[in-house]
Lab assay of single mutants.
Amino acid sequence: MGFKLLSKLLVYLTASIMAIASPLAFSVDSSGEYPTVSEIPVGEVRLYQIADGVWSHIATQSFDGAVYPSNGLIVRDGDELLLIDTAWGAKNTAALLAEIEKQIGLPVTRAVSTHFHDDRVGGVDVLRAAGVATYASPSTRRLAEVEGNEIPTHSLEGLSSSGDAVRFGPVELFYPGAAHSTDNLIVYVPSASVLYGGCAIYELSRTSAGNVADADLAEWPTSIERIQQHYPEAQFVIPGHGLPGGLDLLKHTTNVVKAHTNRSVVE
């Protein structure tokens, strides 16, 4: 069995187990497998329904001669939608809004960016022009300005110390501490036991640490421990890039980060 097929099978099995364990909360999309990078042309966006009122959005972007996937989250909030992270750029984010209108038909009224990198804030200006209120932590807003990236308009308070959590509509926002970046936030959907790890969490097929220019490698494993301790009931975990899975993604990420750190020390 090929690795790609095995990865998709694991996603399907995880979703099936969740649907059985929580039949009222989960209505997993039966329309197909989780979209992969090879299936999404740059400039297009796919939506994948995880649970009743919960979707991931998947886009792709060219970077350094390669094409990478990027995940975000959409959560229903009454007759409105909360968006977590842009679709990595203005063109993708405009396509995301169009796809949401086509498939869901509810307005996106608020959006949260989970850290300051372009795959999370690139497209904020498109959201703002569409009347979406954009939010991020003060740290993310400051770092985005320093980096020359787009800056969300509103500040999220109460997320300055490791372990801080605040309720934001249908989700809980959690600051686990520094990891992929010093400002990275985690998003949890309690009604569906869905954990969105953003770039602080890796997919299972990833074996290298990737972009760690703004990471705190020493603190990252401790931050992941905080996530595990705060959300032990999480059933569906979405990484910032690639295929979702279960809580095993947290341990896998820790292993990859520690291996990278150990290699760096040896070198």
Rank of each mutant, 00 (worst) to 15 (best):
L81K: 00
L47V: 07
A215R: 11
T86M: 02
L6F: 08
V108E: 02
E203P: 09
H241Q: 01
I100R: 01
T140S: 09
V187M: 04
Y12D: 14
T254N: 05
D214W: 14
S160V: 13
L204G: 10
R128E: 05
K258P: 15
Y135G: 01
F116C: 03
F116V: 03
G123E: 02
S16L: 09
H260I: 10
G246V: 11
R120Q: 04
D214Y: 06
S205P: 06
I40T: 07
L73I: 11
P239E: 02
V124Y: 03
F26P: 07
T207Y: 06
V75Q: 02
A213F: 05
V45R: 02
Q228P: 04
I84K: 02
G122E: 08
Y12F: 06
E44L: 14
H117M: 00
S56V: 07
D183H: 02
H57I: 02
E233G: 07
T254C: 08
G148H: 09
I186L: 10
W55C: 00
Q228T: 05
P170K: 07
A133V: 12
L47N: 01
G131H: 13
Q103R: 10
V257F: 05
G72H: 00
V75D: 02
W55K: 00
L159T: 14
L156C: 02
S27M: 05
V11T: 06
L82C: 13
A25F: 15
I20Y: 11
R141K: 08
V75F: 02
A179V: 03
D248E: 08
R141N: 10
T254P: 14
T153M: 12
E39Q: 05
E267R: 10
V166W: 11
T36D: 11
L195Q: 00
N255V: 11
A51G: 07
S205V: 08
L9Y: 07
D164R: 13
N184A: 02
Y48M: 05
V237F: 14
E101G: 14
V257M: 15
A234R: 02
G123K: 02
D125V: 11
P221W: 11
D52H: 06
T36F: 06
E101S: 08
R141V: 08
F63D: 06
Y135T: 01
L127N: 00
A95Q: 09
S7H: 06
A144G: 10
E219N: 08
I227W: 02
Q229Y: 05
E101W: 15
S160F: 11
T60V: 07
L24W: 07
H230I: 15
Y188N: 12
A111G: 13
T93N: 06
L156M: 12
Y68R: 08
S208G: 11
L106K: 14
L13T: 07
V54A: 10
V189C: 01
V146M: 14
L247R: 09
S113I: 11
A94F: 09
V189M: 14
H115R: 00
E145P: 05
K4A: 05
F174C: 03
P190D: 11
T153I: 15
D164W: 13
H57K: 01
K8E: 06
G32N: 05
G242Q: 01
T207V: 13
L159A: 09
H57C: 04
P23C: 12
R76F: 06
T207A: 10
G177Q: 02
S160I: 15
R142P: 02
I84S: 01
K251Q: 06
E233S: 10
L83I: 15
L24Q: 13
S30N: 07
K4S: 11
S208C: 13
V37K: 09
I104W: 08
G148I: 15
E39F: 06
D118V: 08
P152R: 02
T153G: 09
D77R: 07
R226S: 06
N71S: 06
G163L: 13
L159W: 04
L217R: 10
L96K: 01
I238L: 12
Y188T: 03
F116W: 15
F236E: 07
S181Y: 03
P244L: 14
A165P: 13
F236A: 06
R128V: 05
L159H: 03
E219C: 04
T36Q: 07
L10C: 09
P244F: 14
S7D: 10
L247D: 05
E39A: 11
D52T: 11
G198E: 02
V28I: 04
A136Y: 01
H57Y: 03
S16C: 07
A200K: 03
D125T: 07
D248G: 09
P170W: 03
G122L: 13
I224A: 15
Y202D: 07
S31L: 08
P232R: 10
G177C: 01
S181Q: 00
S113M: 05
I17D: 04
D183I: 01
D183Y: 02
V124A: 08
D52I: 05
G198K: 00
V212W: 05
Q229S: 05
G78C: 05
R142T: 13
I40G: 08
S139V: 09
A215L: 12
L6Q: 04
W220A: 11
G2D: 09
G122N: 11
L81T: 14
P244R: 14
T60D: 06
T36M: 14
L24G: 05
K102L: 14
V146H: 14
